[in-house]
Amino acid sequence: MGTAMVITSGKGGVGKTTSTANIGTALALLGKRVCLIDADIGLRNLDVVMGLENRIIYDIVDVATGQCRLEQALIRDKRFDGLALLPASQTKDKSALDAERVRTIVAELKQAFDFVVIDCPAGIEHGFQVATAGADEAIVVTTPETAAVRDADRVIGLLEKSGLRSPKLVINRIRPKMVRAGDMLDIDEIVQVLSIDLLGVVPDDETVIAHNIKGEPTVLRNDAKASQAYRNIARRILGDAVPLMVLEEEPGVFARMRRLFGGRR
């Protein structure tokens, strides 16, 4: 029986879809059977980031409303046997998806996959409730900005209330130079406010945008800085104690992040 993880944030555009694609692919790289679910109905972009857009025939709403069987809607990744995607629909009525139906779909997928990774829509309304419904665990993504951290805090409160007790944190788009100049919140500060375990820190990396457009998750590349960060996150999910990566050759930052991560294990 697999584990279902929802990737959520509250604020839009902080990197949920990017994180879903990369964490999912990284887990597949490590030999796990992974199914990604795009629960962002109406916007649908996980398939684009995964480069699987042109293969969609059925989607999650079709499954929920009984238009097709679950297996028919699953798209197998062209690169990994163990990786699949259940796409969102672009046009159909969002309200066709309710928490109960999603819970059933997720439960069924957990029989066949080690990990079910759910890409949650922004916000805290219906779509959020639906996307988190079947999850066993939650990963909260934030960027080092006050508004994003505030929304993450809000979401953590809601997750805890709905029984997702200890969500994990991913801080995305860190720029060490800006942090040092005081123009960005630093990792310490963010973790202190949110007071949840830090799963990883992903640097701001232009190649991520290029890879997203090409439909090729960054973690497949060896040369990108963000790639290593996502691989480390996947290993931590599997239980390895990987120290936080050095974003830049600065001993102070390294020492501080090690302490942070080490201290919370």
């Binding site: 505030r150 805090d153 953590i156 409160g157 406010v193 007071s195």
Partner: peptide
């Protein structure tokens, strides 16, 4: 526990919070 953004708690009498009250809480 932490009083997180968006949470509103009301107590009758005095209250001791063992945790933080975050911005927005």
């Amino acid at each position: 526990g932490t009083v997180r953004a968006g949470q509103q708690l009301l107590f009758d009498g005095d209250v001791v919070v063992i945790g933080d009250v975050n911005p927005g809480g």
